[in-house]
Every structure is written in C-alpha cells, then in structure tokens.
Design a protein around this nucleic acid. Structure first.
Lengths: 248, 248
DNA sequence: TGGAGAATTTGACCTGGATCATTGTTGATG
DNA sequence: CATCAACAATGATCCAGGTCAAATTCTCCA
C-alpha cells in the first residue's frame, strides 16, 4: 500500500474528498496511479492567482481546501465572475480545447490545490477506463451546471437568483459533510452580485429582505438558512429533475 | 476504402462536415471505425423532437443538415432555450453525467441527424487516442461557449446581446463555408429572445433599430449584415482572445 | 489598539427593458 | 387561392433593479 512520503501530505487514497474529485470510482490501485502524477504545491494566499487568462494550459487543478473564484476581465477592464470552486471541485476544464486559459482563477482565502498535468490525465485515461468515464462525467456535469446558470441568468428575479445561489451552496456543503444550513460565504457581496448578474446593492437588499422575512440569518459572511423550504421553492424554477440528480 | 452501401448515404469520410464533427483529426481508417457505429435515421420534420428531458441517455447526436433547438421546460411550464445547433455540432453532452437527458431538443426545420451510441464512443476513444482527445476538446469547448453566454447574460445590454448572437451565427456559418454576411435565421424571434434573456418585443425593436442605423438588413428570417465592424464592436465586450480562438 | 481603506448597507432617484394591447404579416393547409 | 393561426412589429405604460450618494461597519496592519 502506498504511503505518503511526508506525513503532512495527504494521498488521494487518504483524502476525504476522493469521492468527489478525480479518483471517483477508481480502485485503490488506480487511485495510486493518479496519485503519482498529482502535484501538491504550497497553499495559495487570499488574493493569489492560480492562473490567468491567456496563460498556457498545462494542468487541471482540484481544490483541496479553501475556495477559488474563476473570472474574466473584459476589454473595458470589468470583471465577470464565472464560478466558485469548493474542495473536491476541478478547475481548468474550459481551457482543454484552446490550450490556453480563457479565464483567471484566484484564491478567496488560503487555499490548497492539487495539480495534475492534462497530458498525464490523457495518458492515464486511455489506460484506466474508469478514469476516462469519470472525466467525461466531470466535463458533462460542468456543462449541465453552466446551463442551469444560464436559465437562472435568463429568467429569474433577483430574489430567485440569490435563492438558487444559496441553495446551490447549501447542497454543495452538504455533499462535503458540512452543515447545509449554516456556512460561511467565502466570497464578497460584489462577487455574488457579479456572478448572478446583479448590482451589489441588490444583493445587500435581498439579503436584508430575506432576513426580515425570517428565511435567513445573515451576519457578515456567516449565513444561516432558517426556511430551507422557502428557499428551495424560489430556487427551483428550473427543471426539478436536474436538482434531484445533483443531490447525492 | 470504405464505400457507402447506399449511394444516398454519406459516410463520415465523404461528409463535408467531418472537420467539425466527431471525426476531427482522425485518420481515414479511424474515421471508418467511427463511421461503422454511426446511425443515420430519416430526417426530423420541423417541430419533431429528437429527445426530451427525463428520457434515458444513450447516444450523442450530430446535426448533418438543418437546425436544432435545445431547451428546458421549467415547472411553471415556461420554456427556456439553451442553445441552437447547426450542422457539424454535437448534442447530448449535458446528459453524460446523469445518464438522463436534462434538456429537450427539437428540429427548427427539416433536419438530418447522425446518432452515435455513447458506450461506443467510450469504447472507441479508449482505442483511438485522437478520438479521446477530440471528445475532451468538444466537451471543453461547450463549457467555454456556455461561459461566454453567461457573460453575455450577466452583463450585456439588449443591443449587445443581439449583436453577439448575430456575430456568433455569422462566425459559425463562415466555418461551414457559408456566407458570413447573409443568412437565414432558422429560429423564431421568440426563441432568440428566450435564449438571450430578452422579451420578443425587445428583439424586434433592436432589429429595427439596427436596421435603421444601417447595421443590418432584416427581412423576416433573412438577415444581411451590412456593418460587421460595428456588430463585432458591440459584441466583443467579452474576452477578445476567446473570439480569436474560435475563428478558424 | 488605532485608524485607513475596503466592504457593506441603506436611501433616493432613474431607466432599460418588460408587459400589455393592438395591428400587420406570413406561410401552411384544405 | 382563401383562410386561419402563428409570428412579427409598434406604441403606451410600468416597474425591478440599476446608479449615485452617503453613512456604517468590518479588517487588517503598523
């Protein structure tokens, strides 16, 4: 059995996130093969960039702890937030086609990352059928989730957007065996607004409104969901079976 | 050399779209292997559905001719258009993860389709390295394009959305060796509005406005782009290098 | 521990695009 | 080729959420 060479380094096999991350549905032996090509650098500090637009694409990245914001800068210099990545989630998938990063990624807090060279993913996934299957699924899931966001941005009101956003985070924390009703938002209000296509002020106002109607308790970045039913109701104006599919 | 068994059936090798479609960057022999597992049914009539939400996922589909609209119905019964697919483009990618279709697809006009069972894609892509690479790229491109749409929906004004939409179609027609300045919109105004997060009326108004300012000539579904510069300018509030990457 | 700058909240006001209503157009079908 | 239903255009009105301004609260160093 493979051991970590350094007792502070966690192997894929030992990692609590392996069911969410690359090694999903691999055998222990296969997991060790993946493990061999995973690089674990020192953690990123808050605000530090993992990669930026235009940079050559070589690797995919998995978040081990912390949180990452993916974004784009348009030619007016405005930022557009594309997504947030939590532990076990994988970044860089949008660059496989162009071989250049088409977005930037920055740590929202101290964040540990696993890096895996894409050419090694390609090699391994020719050999390990389960890895290929899993890669297809990861990519497909990303597409599905992006489409859900499109529905949100195309149709929903400010309150529905915030509701969907919070429900989405809640479900993701739940998958990670964290509280689904009390958590800390790793991103600023500006980022939330930007991501959801709303002004910061609107985000603030919706938060206070939801707080007044006893749906939430908000204290800075700490959020407690008091009425998950209501939140789920305003969130689920999208296709219901998508929702149930993403609940484990 | 492989021949079509029926002279009316076009093999991948003969297909003018093969550079855009599954067989991209395959050798002729590899192309024939793909060809063997491609099913070519009879064309869909306008309005006919290729698959619907909830249906079991078995295959990916490539458009051979015509056009397909992908959409979702939310629980209020409202439609949300997710995308439009032109010849050479591939549908069904969003269902790989869940193994159920999470959207529906319907022909906007008489449309010929190639079907390829996903399990056969998986098998073949273990054997044919180029096919695996290409599948990763197709999936990645879809993610990138969805993210571009997110930027559009999150930030842009009505005019910018229509401009981006038309430029995007223009580039796609160009790739297919069709005119990039004169083409027929296969979809209704309602679909355009729905896709772009705008009311139909707004789509109409922007069309007439752009017509008055000599940027377009619109006649029903026929569009002529008169001032491609202007269109490209209002469209490109997104990251410029994405644009250049998608131009061949 | 203080204090500067950033982030957040709140209020007042305004506008782009939604909605509603009506009319004109088109194209499919008997 | 007349008819009807879906589609498209245009005008009038309205409002959700944007923008601007200002007050308040965090946060993180020195």
């Amino acid at each position: 059995m493979k051991e970590a060479s350094n007792k502070f380094v966690v192997t894929c096999r030992q990692c609590s996130l392996n069911a969410l991350c690359f090694p999903y549905s691999l055998t222990f032996d296969e997991m060790d093969e993946v493990d061999d090509v995973v690089k674990r650098g020192k953690p990123l500090q808050r605000g530090q960039e993992l990669f930026t637009t235009g940079q050559e694409f070589t690797s995919l990245y998995a978040v081990r702890s912390g949180a990452i914001k993916a974004y784009n800068i348009d030619e007016n210099g405005d930022e557009q937030v594309i997504g947030f990545f939590l532990p076990g989630e994988i970044l860089g998938l949008d660059a496989i086609d162009t071989q250049k990063h088409v977005s930037s990624a920055k740590a929202l807090e101290t964040t540990a990352i696993c890096e895996i060279t894409f050419s090694q993913v390609q090699e391994l996934s020719l050999k390990i059928r389960n890895l290929q299957t899993h890669m297809y699924r990861i990519l497909s899931r990303e597409i599905r989730e992006d489409q859900e966001l499109q529905m949100l941005l195309g149709k929903k009101t400010a309150e529905e957007r915030i509701g969907s956003f919070l429900m989405n985070l809640s479900l993701r924390y739940e998958q990670r065996s964290l509280s689904s009703t009390r958590f800390r938002l790793p991103m600023a209000r500006t980022d939330i607004g930007n991501y959801l296509g709303l002004a910061v002020e609107t985000v603030s106002r919706v938060f206070t409104r939801l707080q007044n109607s006893k749906v939430l308790r908000v204290e800075g970045k700490e959020v407690e969901i008091l009425d998950r039913n209501y939140l789920s109701k305003i969130a689920n104006n999208d296709c219901p079976n998508i929702q149930s599919a993403s609940v484990k």
